[in-house]
């Protein structure tokens, strides 16, 4: 039976293209988690509760979307959480130095961009594998944040700046709107434009991409830079939400961000994946976290489940792709 299905599918590539996709796993997981969380607590039937639960993860979600692009093109950026902290600290330092809010935001975004550019240059020019390099810059950026802020919380922002997560349009908090719009725009870019298509080509075979006239290094440089910029945005958003900037904020966030991308079915070796999957996986993480909180499982103990999910997600995605390939 299974064999017949697989033969039938291999004869109908378009059908197979739509059916054998790991993001369906994410969709199924999302449905399961919604149903089981509603069993757990009636809160989850309330959309507003879920929306509110989502706001703290929006910063991670934004980065997960960019990280999806990076992983599709065959690289990875693990310095993301450190860049959030560094840009937030730079933002706080700049604001407390009295240079005004607009300028502080510009400086934060600029510093994020520079961090990303630095990653990108080392990866493309020196050919250091990004997975190793960004382990190094992860330490470096966090270290710079610590040097700048020491153990202080940088606060003192005007009230209009604080609490972006408490501004709503209807029942939807503004950060969730930002995330959704960003996901749609990037998703559209990835699926429908030639630049998006080229990311898949680069991730599938960088050599062939180079010989086909695709500027592989330039694209990768751009992606890493973009990752830095988005981390800068996330840094400012986090500061607005928490009202302070600290060097140790978003510690360990790389786990959740990578988890969102992996749960969404993006292939760790590049060339496959999409934004839809990451978008769905974002909500899985939100509901899971909220569910675990409602179930009164300690935040720290939740790490066990997230870590296990990351490993299972990768194994499952690899398995599905190995099936769909042959």
């Amino acid at each position: 039976m299974l064999k017949q299905i697989s033969i039938y599918l291999s004869e109908n590539p378009t059908l197979r293209y739509w059916i054998v996709r790991p993001e369906w796993v994410a969709v199924i997981l999302l449905i399961i988690s919604i149903i089981s969380s509603i069993q757990l607590s009636p809160f989850f039937a309330d959309l507003a509760f879920i929306m509110d639960s989502a706001t703290p993860y929006v910063e991670y979600g934004l980065i997960a979307i960019i990280l999806t692009l990076i992983i599709i093109s065959g690289e990875i950026d693990l310095s993301i959480a450190s860049m959030i902290a560094l840009t937030a600290v730079i933002f706080g330092t700049a604001y407390n130095a009295g240079i005004g809010m607009p300028m502080s935001i510009v400086i934060a975004l600029l510093s994020g961009t520079l961090c990303g550019l630095f990653n990108g240059i080392l990866v493309t020019k020196l050919q250091i594998p990004s997975i190793i390099l960004t382990i190094g810059t992860l330490t470096l950026y966090r270290g710079i944040a610590q040097s700048l802020a020491s153990d202080f919380s940088l606060g003192g922002y005007p009230s209009w700046f604080i609490g972006i997560d408490y501004r709503y349009v209807g029942i939807v908090p503004i950060p969730v709107i930002i995330f959704t719009v960003f996901a749609i725009v990037v998703g559209f870019f990835l699926s429908s434009t030639i630049y998006g298509k080229q990311l898949y080509l680069i991730g599938t075979n960088p050599q062939t991409a180079k010989y086909s006239g695709i500027k592989v290094d330039r694209v990768k440089l751009l992606l890493f830079t973009l990752s830095g910029l988005v981390c800068g945005i996330a840094g400012v958003l986090t500061t607005s939400r928490l009202a302070v900037a600290r060097f140790n904020m978003a510690t360990g966030a790389e786990l959740e961000i990578v988890l969102m991308v992996m749960l969404g079915g993006t292939y760790i070796f590049g060339g496959r994946g999409n934004i839809f999957g990451t978008f769905i996986a974002f909500w899985i993480v939100v509901i899971l976290r909220a569910g675990l909180n409602v179930a009164r499982i300690k935040i720290e103990s939740q790490l066990t489940i997230l870590g296990a999910m990351l490993i299972i997600a990768i194994i499952l995605t690899n398995y599905i792709y190995s099936k769909s390939q042959k």
Partner: peptide
């Protein structure tokens, strides 16, 4: 499972830390 060890141990980094708690 032939997955890069950094990703695997990023997972177990959290998993084991959770176990500690």
């Amino acid at each position: 499972f032939n997955v890069h060890s950094i990703i695997v141990t990023l997972g177990t980094l959290s998993l084991y830390r959770g176990l500690v708690f």
